[in-house]
Amino acid sequence: MVIQMLEWTGERIIPKQLKPTNGMLLEHIARYYFATPYIKGRVLDIACGTGYGSHMVAKERKRELTELIAVDNDDDTIYYANREYNHQKIIYQKEDALDPDLPEKLGMFDTILSFETIEHVADDQRFMDNLYQMLKPGGMLILSSPFGRGRGMPTSEPFHVHQLTPAEFEELFVRFRETEIYYQRGVTFEKPRDGVRYFIGVAVCTK
């Protein structure tokens, strides 16, 4: 019953229900592998979904991280993550990414992961404010989002509020001390090349 509900809520990957060669699954896993070298200290995975990615980086970086807080806004998803991807260093909990009190509730982090989340929220600036407040000075944010027609414009994806343009995506990170933008193509991450169309941006930011 929980798994059926997860399918209905949309865009939450359930690896155990998908073929290993499923393209969307591979893309999601690739983002967590890409982020793995940056994982250290106290970590936040915001909109963690079913928890497979949080579990993966916790196992890979168990010596480098002290605690991983994995949050999602759906009760059934958190229940599933706790059941299927439990780990001694992970705490799964239900939270709203736009809650103005979120920084006070969760505290400060050395590393924040936010994959395929910002396109789901109506107020992307509030979302970014929360992330910035929760990141320690010198901490790192790794954030990804699909590109589209732009803020406030309709999208063909039923669960997306909007999809930012590449320029709007880069503007999200102007207050960070350093930002590197990569582009995801399948399971690879690269700097832009002439003649290649990219659908997903990935920012690595230092506060």
Rank of each mutant, 00 (worst) to 15 (best):
R149V: 07
L113N: 12
F169C: 03
M1V: 08
P166Q: 08
L113P: 11
F127S: 05
P100Y: 03
A47L: 07
M140F: 00
L25V: 05
K40L: 01
K16C: 06
K94P: 00
N82T: 09
L18N: 00
R177Y: 12
Q125D: 10
V174A: 11
R42K: 15
M134K: 11
P20W: 04
E67P: 04
I29M: 14
P15S: 05
A81H: 08
I118E: 11
I69E: 03
I78T: 10
L113A: 10
E190F: 00
V187E: 15
D194Q: 14
E11A: 12
R12Y: 12
E168M: 01
C48H: 08
D75K: 09
I90H: 08
G51Q: 06
Y52N: 10
Y79M: 14
E170F: 02
I90N: 14
A97N: 11
V196I: 15
E157R: 06
T9G: 00
G150R: 01
A122M: 10
I90M: 12
I118R: 11
I142R: 11
F173W: 03
Q4H: 13
G51A: 03
E60N: 12
I181E: 13
H162W: 12
D101Y: 03
G23T: 13
N82K: 15
M1E: 12
R83H: 14
K19C: 11
L98H: 09
K207E: 05
I112A: 05
P158L: 03
T21Y: 06
F199W: 07
E116M: 10
E11H: 13
I39W: 00
L26T: 11
S54G: 13
L135Q: 03
M128W: 02
E95L: 00
S114N: 03
P37V: 10
T117Y: 06
H55D: 11
G49I: 02
P166L: 10
K105L: 01
N22C: 09
Y85W: 08
K59M: 13
G139T: 04
V174I: 09
F127C: 09
H28M: 09
A30T: 05
E95N: 03
F199K: 14
K19G: 11
Q163N: 13
A81V: 07
E27A: 14
A47N: 09
K40S: 10
E171D: 14
H162D: 10
D76I: 07
H28I: 07
L26H: 05
I118L: 08
D72A: 07
E95H: 03
A203D: 08
I91T: 15
T77R: 09
S54Q: 01
G186M: 00
F127E: 11
G152N: 05
S144F: 02
H162F: 15
Y79G: 09
G152Q: 06
T206H: 12
I13K: 02
N82C: 14
Y80A: 07
